[in-house]
Design a protein around this nucleic acid. Structure first.
Lengths: 221, 221
DNA sequence: ACGCTAATGTACGAACTAGTACGTTACCTA
DNA sequence: TAGGTAACGTACTAGTTCGTACATTAGCGT
């Protein structure tokens, strides 16, 4: 997250387009994640910025485009993290387990991103559709999964007939649900899925689940 | 869903409190699911009802309480469906697989409910917290899982050290994600998770996953 | 040094939106 | 059948919210 934390005047400049834009994006990310698209207030975003509402319209055009820009940056952060994935030196089983664990950790560390994705889904992914950048963003993680999966299936270790996209969905489901539905799940079942005391438990559970699925003995079916 | 579909004058009555309330709830469910809490318009709900906005405030008090009532009814529908679950005559493996399949189907058939849950999570489950009915609604499905799990673990069939709440989370995760994140997932990965042509595939995938997890050979760990 | 433009601030408006005051009527009951 | 009350409708308001017209200035290039 390209955060902006108040160095008062880095190089003597008062006017700094890049800085102003980054600051608006920071605050907007928080505000949209806090209240949803329609719940978010442009005035509130402006108020929590050192600049004014005028600048939001000057740089981004409007609320819709601002939200799109927020999504673009948020997905960019995820993509960056995925590019740093380094699990392919492990054997396929360990690699997938590690990948699942990293996904779990990453989701937990970026609840705002999870909320933005939930919000974007409520709105039918219309902002993603309207964004050229997001349309072709791809997913480095998917490529990693593809390669590990091919390796594991070739060696006979992985018996499941599944492709990378579906395996990615399987792993993401659990990680996403845990963060996204934390509040309703907690209220209804009395269990906090993001309680730090249970993190290790869920990491193991997810890893066990995915590996069990991939390596299950299918001769008896 | 206690739907209201225009029998013009069932028993000659023009004024019918129960009917009016049900109609408001029907329309409100659609509107909230369509646009989120803040995106939903009280005027729009009223307009799509044969009654007026005045009645919404007369019966429900306000937008917040209306949303709470919508949630209460939506969760009530789910609970009803869960009470009709009939899988305990099956052996534990078949029972869990069937339960997972029914959960997948049910989520797919109630996308509005999924959206309402997403929306409620964006708002920190504050409406559930404010509802006495929802606070103690429980989950019949959880009881079913509890019993199957106990049976499977006792017989040694299930080797996983997991409780009913976590298993419920595991199953729900996949079913929920598939519907809730359909739009962003489709836009980013080009795969429609709710494509009818893939339904059987995902039913099998979920069943295989859960069963593999529960019955995995853990002696080699 | 100076002018030009990107960057910024102020003040305001038009449209919307949740909620309500006030008036009316159907229908049950005694 | 009369009267009371639950159910309903109309019209309005106060406050909010996105967006913009207009005015101003910092600082880079020459």
């Amino acid at each position: 997250m390209t955060s902006v934390d108040e160095p008062a005047r880095p190089n003597g400049r008062i006017r700094d387009a890049a800085r102003t834009q980054a600051e608006i994006l920071d605050v907007a990310t928080q505000e949209f994640a806090r209240a949803g698209y329609d719940g978010a207030r442009v005035d509130e975003i402006a108020a929590r910025t050192r600049t004014t509402k005028r600048m939001i319209y000057y740089y981004f055009g409007g609320k819709d485009q601002l939200f799109t820009a927020v999504l673009e940056r948020a997905y960019g952060v995820i993509r960056e993290a995925e590019q740093k994935l380094d699990v392919e030196h492990l054997d396929p089983v360990a690699a997938i387990r590690r990948l699942a664990e990293l996904t779990l950790d990453h989701h937990e560390q970026h609840p705002d991103f999870i909320r933005l994705v939930s919000i974007e889904n409520i709105h039918g992914a219309e902002h993603i559709a309207a964004s050229e950048r997001l349309a072709k963003i791809g997913s480095p993680a998917l490529e990693v999964i593809r390669r590990i999966l091919a390796s594991g299936q070739e060696s006979g270790l992985f018996t499941a007939d599944v492709d990378a996209v579906d395996l990615h969905a399987m792993i993401s489901s659990f990680c996403f649900f845990r963060v996204a539905n934390r509040h309703t799940f907690g209220a209804l079942f009395g269990r906090d899925l993001v309680d730090p005391a249970r993190r290790e438990h869920y990491r193991a559970m997810l890893g066990d689940m995915v590996i069990a699925y991939l390596t299950a003995d299918r001769t008896t079916d």
